[in-house]
């Protein structure tokens, strides 16, 4: 299967400190990959850099999406190509409702007008999958949402925007068992209806059980230390990172 995302020898710095020291990563179209690593290993840095965060500066290497070099591209252009990042800490935007924001984003991405009625229908259906109260549609984007509600709202965006490639940055962290189930259901729905590619950053055994994982990448100190199939993720969860950290050192 052809690679939708290919990262070659990527080095990334923030405020003069190098955080990623030559990362190579390939993700095949339609696959589900898991990115694991200890706190501070650079997982979120990698996720945000793929999305085009101006906070991180690419100092070397390339990001190739769909065969095209997007290393210098702005986040909105990457979004239009079909890249999506579910934020670990979604930002609160007062005065813009979740519903109008999503309609606006959908219009920007497709370049087509989205009819209000159609939008509302789709939104209501997606919210039902996620067990979100319909009143959230008319609340200001993420404002006053609990941690769990914010994560659900991210998955809701995933379902509405239907990206080809989604990075889920600890979307399951800080959620109770039921919420993890709901989020997993949303991800499954995305896989089913869009057939998109996933790069999942997680520490959670539960969510891995729900997903059929094609590949696992372990990030240690800003480098990929180990790669394997779905079993590797399960092994890490059971036995910890230590032996991979050891291999790196």
């Amino acid at each position: 299967m052809s690679d939708i995302l290919k990262i070659e020898n990527l080095t990334v710095a923030a405020e003069e400190t190098e955080l990623l020291h030559g990362v190579d990563l390939a993700v095949g179209e339609g696959e589900t990959h898991v990115l694991m690593g200890q706190n501070g290993a650079g997982k979120s840095t990698l996720g945000s850099t793929i999305m085009g965060s101006p906070e991180y500066k690419v100092t070397g290497g390339k990001i190739i999406f769909d065969g095209e070099d997007i290393t210098e591209e702005s986040a909105d252009k990457r979004a239009k190509r079909g890249i999506f990042l579910s934020f670990q800490n979604p930002v609160e935007i007062p005065g813009i409702t979740l519903s109008e924001f999503l309609r606006n984003a959908a219009e920007q991405q497709t370049g087509k007008r989205v009819k209000l009625w159609d939008h509302k229908k789709k939104l209501a259906a997606a919210m039902e999958v996620l067990g979100m109260d319909s009143s959230y549609a008319d609340r200001d984007l993420n404002v006053g949402f609990s941690g769990g509600e914010k994560k659900k709202a991210e998955i809701l965006q995933l379902l509405i925007l239907k990206p080809r490639f989604a990075i889920l940055d600890e979307t399951d962290s800080g959620l109770d068992v039921d919420a993890v189930k709901t989020v997993s259901k949303g991800i499954e729905e995305y896989r089913k209806s869009v057939g998109g590619t996933l790069l999942v950053i997680t520490h959670n055994a539960k969510i891995l059980e729900e997903l059929s994982v094609d590949a696992t990448h372990i990030l240690v100190n800003g480098r990929i230390a180990k790669e394997g199939d779905g079993k590797l993720a399960a092994d890490v969860l059971e036995n910890g990172f230590e032996k991979y950290v050891g291999e790196e050192n």
Binding site: G52, P54, D76, A79, F87, V91, I93, N104, A105, Q157
Partner: peptide
């Protein structure tokens, strides 16, 4: 900058 990144990651231009 975080808010701008969040919104641009959903396909809005920086100006929008």
């Amino acid at each position: 900058d975080e808010a701008i990144f969040y919104l641009t990651s959903r396909g809005l231009s920086e100006e929008e």
